[in-house]
Design a protein around this nucleic acid. Structure first.
Length: 496
RNA sequence: GGGCCGGUAGCUCAGUCGGUAGAGCAGCUGGCUUUUAACCAGCGGGUCGUGGGUUCGAGUCCCACCCGGCUCACCA
């Protein structure tokens, strides 16, 4: 098979060849890339923050701009924290070092030693005394002014996106801080973090198609987890009082603006709690992250609207929301009347749907996306959430909440089922005829007694979308799943 | 899978009525010792997504396909 060169690289070869040539010049002049540690005074952001006129410093970064002026050169270095200007003057660095610097290209990683000064135009700058090459870039950077815009390149070569678009780097730095803030908050509330299996013999705890993989040593099929729930409940049985896991779930579904097949989920459980204690915890958690990391409770969105996290957050029952939107008499109408009303409102109808499914269509199409400010939707139909505890005053409803912010489902919460016999009956009903799909190991644990508990999940990617004002999940995941490409840039054929 | 929009230099983008390929940045050469989208002078750089067709002539019109985005559907 012959290799087909990437069509994008045909013209890029000249750039690469030029830079390899420049590398050769540097190496010949004694400026070969150095691979050992380069001890810095601090990051580039630190250099600016701890600025002292005349201080001796060591700094390193990527050259992202350079302005040659004959016998001196101004350049900007960039690292993950920011940019800082350097000034390379022939008199200061010497003839050889200055000549070599001619071959330092945009994109190269260099280290400098020098002293801090302020230019005539008041920019803090390192007056370079010595410089060395720490890494050579053989490919050019994206354009400096307009940045990198090509959507596919931004996701497939995220490093270029991070280099060229500072706001992207800033967002992912915040995501990192947000995850830390979540852990700190839960720790402060007395929660313990655990890690439970990602590879499971049965993928339980949610309704979704799992990814399957072959475990050769055991000659068995394993599944990537769709939720950690059943293992965390085993830990409640074992005596963990407040426990959480913050990690990846995998669901074998399509891609969309709001779905990635692997996504980060926080699940937390509180022994002797219920849906209300969890709602309070989730609300405090989200506000903690908003306040400490994003520093704002009003968040502008890409469409120009705004999410306002101001308290109190609305709590409203599912049925009340339906009546608000579809008419106070919705639940008094007969089937034909409801279908007519639904169509009037612009919804689909289908004779095969149950009444609950018809109502859910109204909820999803007309209500959910309008809930921009945080809203706890409570008392969902039992048919939609088969594994939660029923409301004591109405067995057709379950004692749960669905927290919606920005029109996205951010966090479901439950009063968990701890009745082993009830749980067995429901799992068996759900598995249908296939007894091998019932998680007997989980039921065995429950039969040893699980405390009543509240449980909640928080979709971390969706939460980051809300807090970051992003409208696509791809913008909050560093390496979002994309369609695979072969060597010729085509999608592989999918057989089915 | 349907509908709509897009693919032109390494990057960001123009390209009129069909008349034979452009700009800025980046690159190369020269000049310039406080510049900052540095500046000045000069030079090189293209499978116009791919393949057909119409035409004297196609980046431009037609057909098919590939790739991407949005959206609807599906899935959950």
């Amino acid at each position: 098979m012959t290799t087909t060169p990437d069509p994008h690289d045909l013209g890029a070869d000249a750039y690469r060849a030029q830079r390899i040539e420049n590398l050769r010049h540097l190496t010949d002049a004694g400026w070969a890339p150095e691979h050992g540690a380069f001890v810095r005074t601090g990051t580039l952001a630190h250099l600016a923050a701890a600025y002292e006129e005349g201080k001796a410093v060591r700094a390193a970064g990527r050259i992202v701009a350079r302005r040659d002026m004959g016998k001196s050169v101004f350049a900007h270095l960039q690292d993950g924290t920011g940019r800082f200007q350097i000034y390379v003057k022939k008199d200061a660095v010497g003839e050889a070092a200055f000549a070599a610097f001619k071959f330092a290209d945009l994109g190269d990683l260099i280290g400098v030693e020098g002293t801090l000064f302020t230019t005539r135009t008041q920019e803090k700058t390192v007056q370079v005394a010595t410089w060395r090459l720490l890494g050579k870039a053989l490919r050019p950077l994206p354009e400096k002014w307009h940045g990198l815009k090509d959507v596919e390149t931004r996701y497939r070569q995220r490093y270029l996106d991070l280099i060229a678009n500072p706001e992207v780097m800033a967002f992912f730095a915040r995501r990192s801080q947000a995850v830390k803030a979540i852990r700190d908050f839960l720790s402060g509330e007395g929660y313990q973090e655990v890690e439970t299996p990602m590879m499971q013999p049965l993928a339980g705890g949610a309704t979704a198609t799992p990814f399957a993989t072959e475990y050769h040593a055991l000659h068995t099929t394993m599944y990537l987890r769709i939720a950690p729930e059943l293992y965390l409940k085993r830990l409640l049985v074992g005596g963990f009082d407040k426990v959480f896991e913050l990690n990846r779930n995998f669901r074998n579904e399509g891609l969309s603006r709001s779905h990635n097949p692997e996504f980060t989920m926080l699940e937390l459980y509180e022994a002797y709690g219920d849906a209300r204690t969890m709602a309070a915890t989730v609300q405090a958690l989200i506000l903690h992250v908003a306040d400490t990391v994003f520093g704002a409770r009003r968040i502008p969105r890409e469409d120009g609207s705004e999410v306002d996290l101001a308290e109190p957050w609305r709590t409203v029952s599912y049925d009340d929301l339906i009546r608000e939107r579809a008419g106070a008499d919705w639940f008094d109408l007969d089937r034909a009347g409801r279908e007519a009303r639904a169509r009037e409102l612009g919804c689909e109808t289908d004779p095969a749907w149950s009444d609950t499914e018809l109502t859910q269509e109204v909820f999803e199409k007309l209500i959910e996306r309008t809930l921009v400010n945080p809203t706890f939707v409570t008392r969902l139909p039992a048919e939609l959430v088969p594994l939660a505890r029923r409301c004591p005053d109405d067995p057709s409803k379950v004692d749960v909440f669905e927290l919606i912010i920005g029109g996205w489902e951010i966090s479901p919460g439950y009063t968990e089922l701890n009745d082993a016999l009830d749980q067995r009956a429901r799992l068996e009903a759900q598995a249908g005829h296939d007894a091998t799909r019932v998680d007997e190991d989980f039921l065995l644990a429950l039969e040893h007694g699980m405390p009543p508990a509240g449980g909640a999940g928080v979709g971390i990617d969706r939460l980051m979308m809300v807090l970051g004002g992003k409208d696509a999940i791809r913008d909050v995941i560093l390496f979002p799943q994309l369609k695979a490409r072969d060597a010729e840039g085509r999608k592989p054929k999918i057989d089915d």
